[in-house]
Design a protein around this nucleic acid. Structure first.
Length: 784
DNA sequence: CCCCAACCGATTTTT
DNA sequence: TCGGTTGGGG
């Protein structure tokens, strides 16, 4: 494809062609910024720039992957494959694998996620004998995150009287000590949290000029997407790297800045031209995505914000339908309305499930929506919430894996040292922690010498033996990792640690689902190894896999069957688009959030969030709200969102104005709204107790027929499939049989090895070649 | 040391 | 209503 420039409009083309020097592209919603970025990179490559010299920072890994594919289709795969693309976190995690030893970290450092960090923090707060109600672990971490994102190290904090006083005033005079303890603890564990990935990168670039120089030469061309959502730490990294060549192109839209709560600094984009006085500015104002009504309504909304760059988003698209507004009586009613709209429009307009998205402010709102969709038999997928990798059984399994590559990882150690139970209790752990601290050893090193040290610590011989066994177990697999692939090692480990048996014993629906999740983890390891082996610069190591899952976001997960209605928070919907979008829960204290109505800045961010939500829609949007909602275990009354009033009525079509605004108990009722309590006033005449019950009856878990939680956003296990899997195992596979595998396709069984309870099959696949599969896990279907 | 029952807190958004 | 944590009994 050589005439790609013809596919662009005037400002887009200019932005693509301006490859040298600083460039800012202000891209209104739906104005084709991905297209600009893609062709800009393709253009660079066509001009002869080496792919190795291009760094492109995206907001999600999925965006990076998609962009890489699109570039491949323009310039060819061999050109595109060497591009550096990814999120800030994943790109710099990768660089830190090489450079972190400069700061004394192991190159196989662990990445602590939020859960790990909270767990570390809880321990610190307990150990320091501080009140957990004043020093709330999450809150404290949030504060530390702020410091880190502003490059305030422990030392800088200790010298900053203003900060110290602010914390003292906030009833937290020990913040400095906590901060120090937390940083030391992570360092000792060979671990970095998310903020460290950026902070330590900055530290290296500042302290080691030769390293900075290396990456400045390496990344001669830098592009940053969603620049409005970069924080100070990210800003400094970009600035440092770009300072030699200044071939920096940032793309963003100040109207879509929605991450201030985690440190995003809108000033980064607002003052780009101050940083780079000769920067060229290209505003993209033509929206190709949405109907005219949606574009205008969105402009109307955002005009209520004071802080913004001037721009005028317009579209040549048709006017389209008005935005439908539905006033529901309860959250269940709201969900039912949405589900039936989806159902009807699918049929009448030949739309598919994937054409619809339901967006909401908080993850908790998905419940009612899921229930309604399930009742109608509409397939859906929930993004976000507790992600797959945060599930307990997965975290446990991953903790074992983490220990293999970084034995000092204290969180991982503590997580699995007694799971499955091997007789190492809390008392022992406390003794170990104290001893490790005194002797300046890591837990692992301490326990590694436990036979010698046990008497001095006060641990009896039996317990010492158990501890020693644990260490030997881990060591055994560390050795195995050198000669076997990641999948085999993990599988063996899952068995040897009794991890699988412990799960198998639990025959409750939750237990079965847990086992299936572990199976799915195994599959994803296998998939990862396969995938990386096909890539020339692939990294099929265990640490590669762990890094991958630590930084994977929910938006990154791909579902093999993606023709489903999409449910997600507005935050997660950033960058996506859908023909029909429902924005649910437009109520005061929900959207805008109760926590964000106190300052103008907060409220403006909520409004931008609303703007983002609406501009996801291509063809048509719905606003829904309810007069009552099930929250915190009871029903509360709700007021419509102030944002609804801000939208000019000319863009709206009220769907059920016939419902009296005045609360009464008229019989709108059972046929329309089923078992929904008919009206709030009626509810008031009831004591609250029975009322709560009547709603509780329809709560998802109360009468859910199937035991497997469909809320899993990660490759939900197909029941039929797993049933046939197990029957295949029990019926016994035979040599010569034809089978189908989810990932590898059709194949023939060549050989069977091992005892019946743990059988391996050698299968020759038509497309994937010969594979050895563990029948306990491989999802096989026998076809002849 | 392990298991179970009672209790408390949660809901703003996420790399 | 849920899930995680804590404390007491076995």
């Amino acid at each position: 494809m050589d005439n790609y420039l013809d596919l662009l409009n005037e400002p887009q083309r200019k932005a693509v062609e301006a490859t040298e020097g600083p460039v800012m592209v202000i891209a209104g919603a739906g104005s084709g910024k991905t297209r600009v970025l893609t062709y800009r990179i393709a253009h660079l490559l066509n001009k002869g720039v080496d792919a190795f010299n291009i760094l492109s920072l995206t907001f999600t890994n999925k965006a990076a992957k998609e962009m890489k594919e699109r570039i491949s289709s323009v310039v060819g795969h061999s050109e595109a494959k060497n591009l550096w693309m990814g999120t800030f976190h994943s790109v710099f995690a990768r660089i830190l694998r090489t450079e972190a030893p400069l700061l004394g970290y192991p190159s196989d450092f662990t990445i602590y996620d939020q859960q790990d960090a909270v767990s570390v923090m809880s321990k610190i707060i307990t150990e320091m004998n501080l009140d957990k109600d004043i020093y709330k672990p999450k809150q404290v971490l949030g504060r530390i995150s702020q410091y880190k994102n502003n490059l305030i190290t422990v030392r800088a904090y200790m010298n900053n009287q203003t900060l110290i006083e602010a914390d003292a005033e906030a009833m937290k005079p020990r913040m400095g000590d906590i901060y120090q303890a937390y940083v030391e603890r992570c360092f000792k564990s060979g671990a970095m949290d998310f903020d460290d990935l950026l902070l330590r990168t900055n530290e290296i670039l500042t302290r080691f000029p030769d390293v900075l120089s290396k990456y400045q030469e390496r990344f001669k061309y830098i592009m940053v997407d969603e620049y409005q959502d970069t924080n100070h730490s990210q800003y400094l990294i970009v600035k440092a790297l770009a300072s030699r060549y200044e071939n920096l192109c940032v793309v963003g839209d100040d109207a879509q800045s929605i991450y201030a709560f985690r440190g995003a600094n809108i000033r980064n984009i607002l003052s780009f031209q101050k940083d780079y006085p000769d920067a060229k500015l290209y505003p993209l104002e033509q929206n190709y995505r949405s109907s005219d009504t949606i574009v205008q309504a969105a402009n109307n909304i955002i005009s209520y914000n004071q802080d913004q760059l001037e721009k005028n988003v317009w579209t040549a698209n048709d006017k389209g339908d008005k935005i439908a507004v539905y006033r529901a009586l309860s959250d269940a009613d709201e969900a039912r309305y949405i589900a039936s709209q989806i159902w009807e429009r699918q049929i009448s307009e030949h739309l598919q499930p994937k054409d619809f998205a339901i967006l909401y402010r908080t993850n908790a709102q998905s419940r009612a929506l899921e229930e309604a969709l399930r009742k109608k038999g509409i397939s859906y997928r929930v993004f976000g919430g507790t992600s797959f990798y945060q599930r307990k059984e997965i975290k446990d399994m991953v903790a074992y894996m983490r220990l293999l590559i970084n034995q000092n990882d204290e969180e991982a150690f503590l997580r699995v040292v007694n799971y499955p139970a091997r007789g190492i209790g809390q008392t022992t752990i406390s003794k170990l922690l104290i001893a490790a601290d005194q002797q300046k050893l890591t837990l692992f090193d301490l326990v590694d010498n436990i036979t010698l040290l046990a008497p001095t610590i006060g641990i009896n011989k039996g317990t010492a033996l158990k501890l020693n066994d644990f260490i030997l177990l881990i060591k055994r697999f560390q050795v195995m990792l050198k000669t076997h692939d990641v999948y085999e090692v993990t599988m063996e480990m899952a068995k040897a640690t009794n991890f699988l048996n412990a799960l198998k014993e639990d025959s409750t629906p939750e237990g079965i689902s847990r086992l299936e999740n572990v199976q799915e983890l195994m599959n994803s390891i296998q998939g990862y190894v396969e995938e990386q082996q096909q890539l020339e610069d692939g990294d099929s190591s265990l640490s590669g896999f762990l890094e991958n899952i630590a930084l994977a976001t929910d938006a990154d997960n791909e579902d093999e069957d993606d023709n489903k209605v999409n449910l997600m928070t507005v935050h997660l919907a950033k960058g996506l688009e859908f023909p029909i979008v429902f924005i649910a829960g437009l109520e005061e204290n929900l959207f805008p959030s109760m926590m964000a109505v106190n300052t103008r800045a907060e409220l403006e961010e909520e409004r931008r969030l609303f703007y983002v939500a609406l501009t996801r829609a291509e063809k048509n949007a719905y606003f829904t709200y309810s007069v009552s909602r099930f929250r915190w275990g009871k029903i509360i009354d709700c007021e419509p969102s102030r944002f609804l009033e801000e939208v000019d009525d000319q863009f709206l079509s009220w769907k059920n104005l016939h419902i009296p605004t005045q609360r009464n108990n008229s019989g709108l009722s059972s046929d329309l709204f089923g078992d929904t309590p008919t009206s709030p006033s009626q509810s008031r005449s009831y004591p609250s107790e029975p009322r709560a019950k009547s709603v509780a009856r329809q709560h998802p878990n109360a009468n859910r027929p199937d035991p497997i939680k469909p809320k899993q956003n990660f490759k939900p296990i197909d029941q039929a499939k797993s049933a046939s899997t197990s029957s295949a195992n029990h019926l016994g596979l035979m040599i010569g049989q034809h089978v189908v595998h989810d990932r590898f396709g059709r194949g023939v069984v060549k050989d069977l090895q091992g005892d019946p309870s743990d059988m391996k099959a050698i299968i020759h696949f038509e497309n994937a070649g010969e594979k050895k599969l563990l029948l306990n896990f491989a999802k096989l279907r026998i076809i002849s």
